[in-house]
C-alpha cells in the first residue's frame, strides 16, 4: 500500500494502483485517475458506468461482472470498450475507486 496525492487529496492505493478506500473518491479524484489512465475527459456515459460500479461495490462488497455491468447499467459491451479502451473492467474499476475486479467473466 502506498499513499500519494491525487487532485489535492492524499489517497491510498494498493500495489496494483487500485484505491484502497472507495470513500476517498470524488469527482476530482475520478478525473485525475482518468487522466492517468489516458482518458482526457469523462462524460455522462463514463459516469453511468462509474456510478454503477460504485453502487454495486457498496451493496455487494465486490464490483459487478462485465455481463451484469452491461446488462444493468444500460451501457452495452461495444460502448463500454469504446468508453474505456484497452482493459475496460480494470480501467473502469480503477477510475471508480473500487478494488480490482475478481471474477473471470
Amino acid at each position: 500500500m502506498k499513499e500519494r496525492e491525487v487532485a489535492g487529496k492524499v489517497v491510498a492505493f494498493d500495489d496494483e494502483n487500485f484505491m484502497v478506500n472507495y470513500k476517498d473518491w470524488d469527482l476530482d479524484v475520478a478525473t485525475a485517475l482518468a487522466e492517468e489512465e489516458g482518458l482526457q475527459s469523462l462524460n455522462d456515459r463514463h459516469f453511468t458506468v462509474l456510478e454503477f460500479l460504485r453502487r454495486t461495490y457498496e451493496e455487494k462488497g465486490t464490483g459487478p461482472t462485465i455481463r451484469r455491468l452491461t446488462k444493468e447499467s444500460g451501457v452495452p459491451t461495444k460502448e463500454l470498450y469504446a468508453l474505456f479502451p484497452g482493459a475496460p473492467a480494470k480501467k473502469a474499476a480503477r477510475i471508480a475507486g473500487i478494488p480490482k475486479p475478481k471474477g473471470c467473466i
Partner: peptide, 8 residues
Amino acid sequence: ANGARMEG
C-alpha cells in the same frame, strides 16, 4: 477469449 478482450 472474453477474458483476453477484458485485458485488452
